[in-house]
């Protein structure tokens, strides 16, 4: 069995065991249902959005919420609802891509550090502890300073900002698992390090990392919105929740809905992510394992 098959199998097992159980409570259903809906909205944005997100109509600028513009229009007369819907695409894809990169890199580094130990572990953990005390926005800004504003740099900035978290967590899991009897037995049976790591350690370590990754997507959305708000993320006319609010500040008095609705979108999404993440933690019963890291 090759690595990708193994990855698919462990993910599949994970889904069958836990996602289902996270939906068992009322909060889990509401939060999880909202997130599924949001992903669908992001995917089918062109078919759902009532208007073209970039179509300007200066005669109808700053129109208040009503018909046909349910959430009003912005200073160029663009439909706010359509822009919020397309903004979901930007926010979700940037955050999810960033966290996926961060998770992959963090798991590799953390697993290697935890498994091999020694100088390598100390070097990795020194760097991780170094970034640990720094607020994510500062790390992201340093990175944006290097590659300049834009969605690519936002993605990488978010990935770097949360790298320490995944590295720490994975390492803690691996270090804990390494002491277990079944790993000792496998080592004594003469298994190769790659076999032990991929076949025995990672499948057992992956659950907390995935849950933290899920929660980090929420943080990533906030960070993406913040960078977008500073004008360092998505560049116009790409709709993003943060950038919408940034252009809305100039019309704060005239058309507050331009900043209110994208903000509601960010807040509700992040709250849903957190609530669902909490349910996942409960369903998987991994609170203690998260605390140890």
């Amino acid at each position: 069995m090759n690595v990708s098959q193994m990855a698919i199998r462990s993910l599949d097992a994970f889904a069958r065991m836990s996602i289902g159980r996270a939906f068992a409570s009322g909060i889990g259903i509401v939060a999880g249902g909202f997130l599924i809906l949001l992903v669908l909205v992001a995917i089918f944005a062109p078919w759902i959005a009532p208007f073209d997100y970039a179509a300007q109509n200066l005669l109808n600028a700053n129109a208040s919420p009503g018909w046909p513009h349910l959430l009003g229009t912005d200073e160029f007369g663009r439909d706010v609802l359509s822009r919020v819907i397309f903004g979901a695409r930007t926010s979700l894809s940037v955050s999810a891509t960033a966290i996926a990169i961060s998770m992959a890199a963090g798991m590799t580094l953390g697993a290697a550090a935890g498994y091999f130990g020694g100088v390598f572990e100390r070097a990795v953990m020194t760097v991780v502890d170094l970034t640990w005390s720094f607020p994510d926005i500062l790390i992201a800004l340093i990175f944006v300073a290097i590659i300049g504003p834009g969605l690519t740099s936002t993605t990488f900035a978010i990935a770097i900002a949360y790298l320490a978290q995944f590295t720490r967590l994975t390492r803690a899991q691996i270090v804990r698992l390494k002491r277990e009897t079944f790993i000792e037995a496998t080592i004594n049976l003469g298994a190769k390090p790659s076999h032990i790591l991929l076949r025995h350690l990672m499948p057992n370590a992956i659950a907390p990392v995935i849950v933290v990754g899920m929660l980090a997507i929420g943080d990533g959305i906030v960070l993406e919105a913040t960078l977008g708000f500073f004008g360092l993320g998505a560049q116009p006319p790409t709709p993003s929740w943060g950038a919408m609010m940034s252009s809305g500040t100039a019309q704060l008095f005239l058309s507050p809905w331009v900043i209110i609705f994208p903000g509601v979108a960010v807040a509700v999404t992040v709250i849903a992510v957190n609530l669902f993440g909490d349910e996942l933690i409960r369903a998987l019963d991994i609170r203690d394992r998260l605390r140890g890291a």
């Binding site: 929420g218 906030v222 919105a225 913040t226 708000f229 609010m245 500040t249 704060l252 507050p256 900043i259 209110i260 903000g263 960010v266 807040a267 992040v270 709250i271 957190n274």
Partner: peptide, 16 residues
Amino acid sequence: LGSTVPGFWLALLLIL
């Protein structure tokens, strides 16, 4: 709410 609402948005709402 305190740990999820983006700071800049809260700031804008307070201003508003």
